[in-house]
């Protein structure tokens, strides 16, 4: 096949990006292969750890630039999420967890648009599942420790319900607390990252195909339009990435707050 734009025939048909392209293996076989999101997640971990340690090791009252940046991220997590949701009494214990989750998620979402990395590890479903499992085990352990098994089940039913409807509500609440909440927590993050990256891929590969492999004036215009759309969508994606990291942290805090709450 010829890649020359002068070739009069349409050299190849357009292959839209498919989910198989998200599986990028470096070495290894099958379940034990070492893939691109794994590398990126390792990079995220190393960068987050070194940045946080470096900027907070010599914490001063008059902050340096790095410390200022860390505090700008830390303050909304501590005051806006942890304190407002978990309550002023015991929120401090959970701030490190929420802050670590937020930083990791933010950077691994942003990997989608950082040049040379350009792949979100959270666009592979295993990474949101692992993070969700981490949060899930913590909040269920807190709830069982605080309330006991019977107390936990009792606390699921809001008081004042009529007697005959309580068994059905209990079934609904158990399914919601133990299955629906973690599943939606993981799938919300995965779906947003996966679909966003897919959209960028589609606009860029489509624009490239129309510009270079198709003849005709109208294709050039559509190709340029497609690239412009890709730029716009990249800006939109950055917003979504911040938002999803924030929402994941917010919901994790909500679930922790629900499991330490003693009322209802």
């Amino acid at each position: 096949m010829s890649f020359s734009p002068l070739a009069a025939v349409k050299t190849e048909s357009f292959e839209p990006p498919n989910p198989q392209e998200f599986y990028q293996r470096f070495f290894g076989h099958g379940d034990w292969s070492f893939t691109r999101p794994m590398v990126l997640f390792l990079v995220v971990g190393v960068v987050v750890c070194t940045f946080l340690v470096m900027t907070t090791r010599k914490a001063a009252i008059v902050p340096s630039k790095g410390q200022w940046l860390t505090e700008q991220v830390y303050a909304p997590i501590r005051n806006g999420i942890a304190q407002d949701i978990i309550g002023t009494k015991e929120f401090l214990k959970y701030v490190p967890l929420l802050f670590a989750v937020f930083c990791t998620l933010l950077l691994s979402n942003l990997m989608s648009v950082i040049p040379f990395f350009q792949f979100p590890p959270t666009g592979r479903v295993a990474f949101p599942i692992a993070l969700t499992l981490f949060v899930y085990v913590i909040y269920q352990a807190i709830a069982f420790k605080r309330k006991g098994v019977v107390g936990y089940l009792k606390s699921l039913i809001p008081p004042g319900l009529p007697m005959w409807i309580r068994p059905m509500i209990l079934v609904l609440e158990i399914i919601t607390y133990f299955i629906t909440r973690p599943v939606t927590l993981a799938l919300r993050l995965f779906g947003n990252m996966f679909a966003g990256h897919m959209l960028l891929l589609l606009f860029i590969t489509g624009g490239e195909f129309m510009l270079l492999h198709q003849d005709g004036f109208q294709y050039k215009i559509f190709g340029i339009g497609s690239f412009l759309m890709a730029v716009l969508m990249t800006l939109f994606e950055i917003l979504i990435e911040f938002l999803q990291a924030y929402i994941f942290t917010l919901l994790a805090a909500t679930y922790i707050a629900d499991s330490i709450a003693t009322e209802h």
Binding site: G80, I81, Q83, D84, I85, L172, T176, T180, R181, T184, I247, L250, L251, A253, T254, A257
Partner: peptide, 13 residues
């Protein structure tokens, strides 16, 4: 802060 996440809880119910 719980007020913001009520919508999400409602959705999961």
């Amino acid at each position: 802060g719980m007020t913001e996440s009520v919508g999400v809880s409602a959705l999961s119910y």
